[in-house]
Simulated scan of single mutants.
Amino acid sequence: MSTSVPAEEEVEQPAREPGSLNKPELWWRDHQKWLEQSGYMLRQRYRDAWSPSWKGTGKKWYDCEDGVTPRNAVMLDATRMSDGSLVALKKVHKPSYPYEIAIALLFSSDALASDPRNHCIRIIEVLQVPDDEDFAILVMPYMRKYDLPRFDTFGEVVSFFIQAFEGLQFMHAHLVAHRDCDGRNIMMDGVHLYPQGFHPVDTIMKPDMSGWAKHTTRTLHPVKYYLVDFGLSRRYSAEDLPPREPPIRGGDKSVPEFQHSDEPVDPFPTDVYYLGNMIREGFIQKRYGFEFIEPLVSDMVQDDPSKRPTMDEVVSRFETIRKSLSSWKLRSRIAERDELAIIEFYRAIIHWRRRIGYFIRRIPAVPLP
């Protein structure tokens, strides 16, 4: 005779109070003291003594500095206590991403870090989580999205293209395929574009969330762009070439060779597709005036991977394109296809005022770091 065991009654969990810590944030709070001992201070929100600043004030939690919730469960900002600089912390699950740390450290090594063609994010240090061998923390300089603030001129975008192409070419030259190099994984060292700072999560706002953060331009203060997130990346030896890997779908789900087959493919042409499709969707389709790069991008996103150019060819062809662009074109304003007429008029006036000043001061039209 069998006996049945009654199922445990489900206990209804209380709803999370708006603005309170979510589950991923609790992990950071629980490791705050260890991170502080390691030299990195988290914001007030993640300290034991935190009391929400909006309580009893009538303010909304989302209008307060300590009420903003990170959008990424594995990333958090911190302050390096030794010099006060803003850094980014990334929690890496080593069993899931066994190659990420080694590849990140390869491009941060003394032998490669000083090469100006190296556009891989620099690793300041790796911290082993003391209570869980499966997790480590990558400490990196804080980066901003590559297109925030918005590009002002074609020269600024040309600088971005040069650096993005050069960075992926450098990775491929060292036999590393990124395998997820769409726009989500290209960042810039744009902290200096905001002289009065910005909130590290809601990055268009002032540090105290009291208004919009004011910024300067890339033309006046050039930035360097970086490839980040090597969780899906792989390094090969010369004997492995050409490598063959089963499809692995990153942020861009449109890769032609992944649509109808699970057959292993060479990941290097897939990288070329990712970068080309980022330009196609983010610039050619979204903004006016990028006809000059359409032929190159069309080749980079061909359905047949074997017909795509290598990154060496991409860099060479784009250098020819760049030399064909006039100073007038390079200093011209970038206009969004969905830009309202009144906003376009206002931005055009501001742009011309800046443009004349830059020309008089002989500031280069293509701002390279």
Rank of each mutant, 00 (worst) to 15 (best):
Q285A: 06
E294G: 03
T270C: 08
D304N: 15
M311F: 15
T310G: 10
S261W: 12
D299K: 15
L296P: 04
V315W: 13
M278Q: 05
V272S: 12
Q302N: 07
R249D: 04
E319Q: 13
Q285L: 06
Q285S: 13
G250C: 00
S298G: 07
M311C: 11
S261P: 00
G251D: 09
F290I: 07
Y274R: 15
Y288L: 11
V315N: 10
P267Y: 14
D252W: 02
E294S: 10
V255G: 08
D303L: 01
K286V: 03
S298V: 04
T310P: 07
R317W: 12
E257P: 05
M278L: 14
S306R: 15
V315S: 09
P264K: 14
P295K: 04
E263L: 13
E313Y: 03
D252E: 14
R280K: 14
E294N: 07
H260I: 00
P309N: 04
K253H: 11
P267N: 02
K253R: 03
E263Q: 15
D271A: 09
P269Q: 08
F292T: 03
R308F: 03
F318T: 01
R322S: 12
T320W: 00
K286R: 15
S254E: 07
F292C: 15
G276S: 10
D266H: 08
G251W: 14
P295A: 08
I279T: 11
K286W: 03
P267R: 12
G289R: 07
P264C: 12
P256C: 06
R280M: 02
V297R: 09
Y274Q: 11
P264H: 07
V314I: 12
F318C: 05
T320P: 02
G282I: 02
E313D: 10
E319F: 10
E263I: 14
Y288F: 14
D299Y: 09
S324L: 02
P267A: 02
I321G: 13
Y273E: 08
G250L: 11
I284W: 13
Q302T: 05
T270K: 13
P269M: 06
F292L: 02
F268L: 11
V255H: 08
F318Q: 10
K286G: 01
P267G: 11
D304Q: 03
D299N: 13
R308P: 14
R322D: 01
S261V: 04
R287Q: 15
V272C: 09
M278S: 12
R317K: 15
